[in-house]
């Protein structure tokens, strides 16, 4: 499943970069993140619980940042496994300055395996979009609270 989109964040590019690369801040953006701890350079162990109404799945796995070109672009990989199967997402994020704000563009691939893939195909796209939306909403909220000067 392809995912792509863009969002305008009311913060300087450096701040957005900082948010995406600081594990503590990243953890707050990740929907349902229960744990995120360092496991090597730019690699973190994570536990997340994705939920949509009654449907939920707990996954444990890793987040990895790579191809970092501060402050313009980086690649984020998230993979995890849990009782409903596994999920894997990988994509590139590009940041551009737009009149003091930052435009974030993302483009990537998401894959789920196991039970969710077999029974959830009609809802998966929307669910993925909502989770990404939640991520950026949380990011925007964090940036708002940290602007100005914090």
């Amino acid at each position: 499943m392809k995912v792509q989109g863009q969002i305008l964040l009311a913060a300087a590019r450096g701040q957005v970069w900082d948010l995406l690369t600081d594990p503590a801040k990243l953890a707050k953006c990740l929907p349902g993140c229960e744990k995120l701890e360092a496991a090597g350079p730019d690699r973190y162990k994570v536990s997340v619980k994705f939920a949509l109404a009654a449907i939920s799945g707990s996954y444990s796995g890793a987040v990895e940042l790579s191809e970092k070109k501060q402050p313009e672009s980086l690649r984020i990989m998230l993979e995890g496994k849990g009782t409903p199967g596994f999920m894997k997402g990988e994509g590139r994020i590009r940041l551009t300055e737009k009149q003091g704000q930052t435009e974030l563009r993302y483009e990537g691939e998401a894959q789920v395996g196991g039970m969710i893939a077999a029974v959830g195909q009609r809802m998966i796209d929307v669910a993925a979009r909502r989770i990404i939306q939640q991520f950026f909403d949380a990011a925007a909220a964090q940036l708002r609270s940290s602007v100005p000067g914090a």
Binding site: A54, I55, S56, G57, T83, P84, M115, I116, G120
Partner: peptide
């Protein structure tokens, strides 16, 4: 809706 999701363990209230 709920019982099939529970049986597949997609929902586990």
């Amino acid at each position: 809706s709920l019982l099939p999701m529970m049986k597949l363990r997609l929902a586990a209230p």
